[in-house]
Design a protein around this nucleic acid. Structure first.
Lengths: 137, 137
DNA sequence: TTCGAGAATGATAATCATTCTCATTTTATG
DNA sequence: CATAAAATGAGAATGATTATCATTCTCGAA
């Protein structure tokens, strides 16, 4: 990790994210934290930004463009359906070996990666199939 | 691919993205297209959204949170430095095999994936190293 | 070819996530 | 303690994205 020095707010934000085992938007993170402590929305954003640069928090954008933040250690990846927009978590990361190999062959020091698959989940694929046939495409 | 039916605006947006071999923000895409044709900003956004759902366009958010769009066929991945924010493209995708395997073992139909590595580029790693030492951390 | 319904588009207003500003509070340090 | 620097919260400002709506285009049916 880069540095370990964190402000109290940064620590609180990170802990909250770690306890939620799912990605959160900045707004819902803020709402959630307000239930237990006093914190400003700007501080949430500032902390998320600092934690991103510390390599402790990662972000991804949903199909709709909503930005979601999660603790890096969770290291979860998703398959996201292009039709219904739902995201399905992968149960394990298929990239450990590749990351190690890349690490060895380049001067870049990797802390974490993001990986997401896009396509159609089964129900949507079936539904689209039905539509295609009824339109005789 | 999902469907091939595209409106003229969607086709123009996709072609512009394909000709640029780099991710573009919606705004710069709009500016670029205005030089050659008449198109509204809202239409650019609408087309990008439609193309995302058609599996032809993908988006990613930079460290700073800027949303960048690119044609899926480009299939580029990046290593992004957490310190300076620069993104370095990978020259090939290390995931073909894994995608095929995942395709076989799940009922999800994959059209494309996004993959990005985060860490430190060499100059930043050296610079940070110097700082650490001077602070005797 | 002409008509009409529905889709697509452009301009612009509205929304809302994110960032900025600044006064106040906390922290680190001598 | 005293002080400076950093962190914070509240609310204003910004700017990307989305919604609205009047107009234009598309295309099948007459």
């Amino acid at each position: 990790m880069l540095s370990t020095h964190c402000t109290p707010a940064q620590t609180a934000v990170l802990q909250t994210l770690q306890r939620q085992h799912r990605p959160l938007s900045a707004q819902s993170l803020y709402t959630l934290m307000c239930q237990h402590q006093r914190i400003g929305l700007a501080t949430v954003y500032r902390s998320l930004d600092a934690l991103k640069r510390l390599g402790r928090v990662q972000h991804r954008a949903t199909l709709e463009g909503e930005m979601l933040y999660s603790a890096v250690e969770a290291d979860h990846h998703y398959m996201t359906c292009l039709h219904c927009g739902q995201s399905f978590p992968l149960d394990r990361c298929p990239l450990k070996a590749i990351e190690a190999q890349l690490q060895g062959s380049s001067s870049f020091t990797i802390y974490y990666h993001t990986l997401e698959f896009f396509g159609l989940c089964e129900p949507c694929a079936i539904q689209m199939d039905g539509i295609s046939q009824s339109l005789s495409l």
